[in-house]
Nucleic acid binder design. Sequence first.
DNA 1: TATTGTTATACTCTATAACTATA
DNA 2: TATAGTTATAGAGTATAACAATA
Lengths: 161, 161
Amino acid sequence: MGSEAAPVVGPSFLISQLGHHASGSFADRLAPSGLTPQHAGILRLLASAEGPFTQTTLGHYLGVLPSRLVVLLDQLEEARLVARKSNPVDRRSNHLGLTKRGRDAWERVSTLSDELDESLLAPLSAKQREDLLGVLRILSRAHGLAPGVHPAYRRLTDSED
Amino acid sequence: MGSEAAPVVGPSFLISQLGHHASGSFADRLAPSGLTPQHAGILRLLASAEGPFTQTTLGHYLGVLPSRLVVLLDQLEEARLVARKSNPVDRRSNHLGLTKRGRDAWERVSTLSDELDESLLAPLSAKQREDLLGVLRILSRAHGLAPGVHPAYRRLTDSED
DNA sequence: TATTGTTATACTCTATAACTATA
DNA sequence: TATAGTTATAGAGTATAACAATA
């Protein structure tokens, strides 16, 4: 039992499969702007009112290692989307912030993200979309996934279920 | 509008987030057996009745490059789960098959996969699970994702929507 | 000449450790 | 002594190209 012609796959597989597809589509749509999903994640957090962020706190939120974050922020700073402002209180750490260009970029990413949602859910009825969103929120919360934070393999704060 | 304290995220993000979580959990549960999700994907296809597979056809199904497949099959062959049988009709290609150990391993992976499904959907009612599975199947099919084939970034047969 | 599997190589991302400058 | 950011380096995985055997 269990070795059919077309393998019967469960919900975990389907979610993972669709999630990968969605990530790929997001990356594709982002690519022309020179940004990656990791960059977008940083913009998303810096655009939110959760700050102020230092590199340590941002890295902790995103599950990105400090050494990796340096590279990503270098790129975003070179693109003039993010600024590292020195912190007078503790001169070891930086306060991170979006520039005007950075806020504009985030707006575009946000729009693009809405378009992706629309495209992904196109085959569903309004009721199906609503139910799906509700269920996804339940699952995300139940499994301890931080709101708005993509676990790009967070092998850091590991307290799995 | 749009820059809340807790960023408002859409269904694509949530699916991607949950998919990554599910993949990670799967990898964690698989790890003690020395297998990775990629190995499991190969076992899944070889256990199905879609064969016989050569390395080219298998790689095409999985979206894994030939050069990568060589490494994965070397590992599975060293673990005695898979056998490369030479094909008398065309001596360039191999017929791939599971060994007895390989079929046993696939049974265990399959069980483990069921447990993961149960754990993932634990917070949902029976009706919610049923609805979710239906919607996921609709989406997977609508977006051209092959049944039982995880798109581990298939940048090959790219015909995106 | 084309195809199957293989090897070699470059690039990206993850992860760890060492270093600096501050505290 | 510990912490924030940085740099250096090793290890997977992805991707491309070149190669040997076979068709």
